[in-house]
Design a protein around this nucleic acid. Structure first.
Lengths: 217, 217
DNA sequence: GTCAAGATTTTTGTATACAAGAATGATTAG
DNA sequence: CTAATCATTCTTGTATACAAAAATCTTGAC
């Protein structure tokens, strides 16, 4: 966990959470003065935090006008999930020939914890372990840059993935897909791992409807 | 072309160019005060520009210490090129079934201009057309998010690609690879396009040596 | 009553002032 | 002469002040 020292960073983190959690509507202006008051700081750290939001894609800045929340619409989300599927796929291909035995072991262990979380109906726990599962694959690529890019997108899509997993049958299906992925990685079959991960992450068929439904909540 | 209004944005752009062009060494501290003096502005816009550099990955910020240039080393570059290869590959796969006839036509036209640039020994022109070639493929994915991500990385790797193309035989080899890519896209063969683009961008064999050599210049 | 032009207010972008932590150097004890 | 501690200086982070542009409101003409 990174230690954050400056107020601007803490504020940026908090604002990201607020945007994530739907506290703001799309198009809302992020008023520097009001934010400064509510955070009990001056406009300076607020402005730095807003810049971070803009550069992370959560907001848009119109010069001399202000910063506005930009929540992804259905099309944006589809595009982001498709991109994520391709990136995870690439991670799988590379990890298949590079992941360490420790990595594979961690993958299996994480999968087990996923399974127990499912059995205990611990959705929150499942989210967390599922994240670790994918992050372990990113790490397995032995490509720090790709890993960071994957983490960035994973974080960006996190809230939407959560809502998706709430649908009936999704969790158990997801679990069996995980097994396929581990098998492919264990066998060192890059193409199979790439395919399995792409299918796992991609939003197609049933999942498309579910994503669209979850957008109206 | 985007219009930039605020000074901070112009300064950020200029600083990026300076870091790109090797004006700073790795680890150099970007002194706010000196930069402010040299740009004839106050520290405020400088700080905003520095933040942009940090979030783009060109520099690193250590709280209460300052901002330091972070140029990619050999390992970072290999990782970035590998990631780029995978992303371009993904673009190829998606574009194969989505690129419009206009897109294909643009691709062929751009390739022709590449060819004439080669014949005229116009390396600068070749760089530009080559960029357009790849950007046309990004556009062909019909995925705006992926397109933007690809453009980001392309921009980040631009200076290194340039040095690479200066090696004997690279340009003509690159040209024939372009033809392969266009063929695959035209045939709608996603897998072939993916493979062709990955091989085209990937740094392997001869190209690895060339990249390493070009780093010491 | 409506629309437009000008004045006023608000808000962003920039400059400057100030506070706190880090780096540097000096001074003194060993 | 070396090392450690303290003081000084410098730099960053934050607050405040100011300027310019945009938004809003008012007033007047039609």
């Amino acid at each position: 966990m990174e230690i954050e020292i400056t107020r601007a960073e803490k504020i940026a983190e908090t604002l990201e959470q607020l945007v994530f959690s739907g506290h703001y509507k799309d198009g809302d202006r992020l008023d520097e003065i009001k934010l400064a008051e509510s955070f009990n700081v001056s406009r300076t750290p607020i402005r730095e935090a807003l810049q971070r939001l803009v550069l992370s894609g959560f907001a848009e800045q119109i010069p001399r006008r202000g910063v506005f929340v930009r929540l992804p619409g259905p099309v944006d989300l589809m595009e982001m999930f498709e991109t994520m599927a391709e990136i995870e796929s690439a991670c799988g291909r590379l990890a298949a020939s590079r992941i360490t035995d420790q990595g594979l072991e961690l993958l299996r262990a994480t999968n087990l914890r996923c399974q127990t979380a499912v059995e205990k109906q611990d959705l929150e726990g499942y989210y967390a372990e599922n994240e670790v599962f994918h992050q372990t694959i990113y790490r397995g690529t032995a490509n720090g840059f790709l890993e960071k890019e994957a983490l960035r997108l994973q974080n960006r899509l996190k809230p939407y993935r959560r809502t998706q997993l709430r649908f009936r049958g999704r969790v158990s299906q997801s679990m069996s897909e995980h097994l396929l992925i581990v098998e492919a990685l264990q066998a060192g079959d890059g193409e199979a791992a790439a395919r399995a991960l792409r299918d796992h992450v991609a939003v197609q068929g049933e999942k498309f409807q579910q994503l669209m439904v979850s957008l109206n909540s």
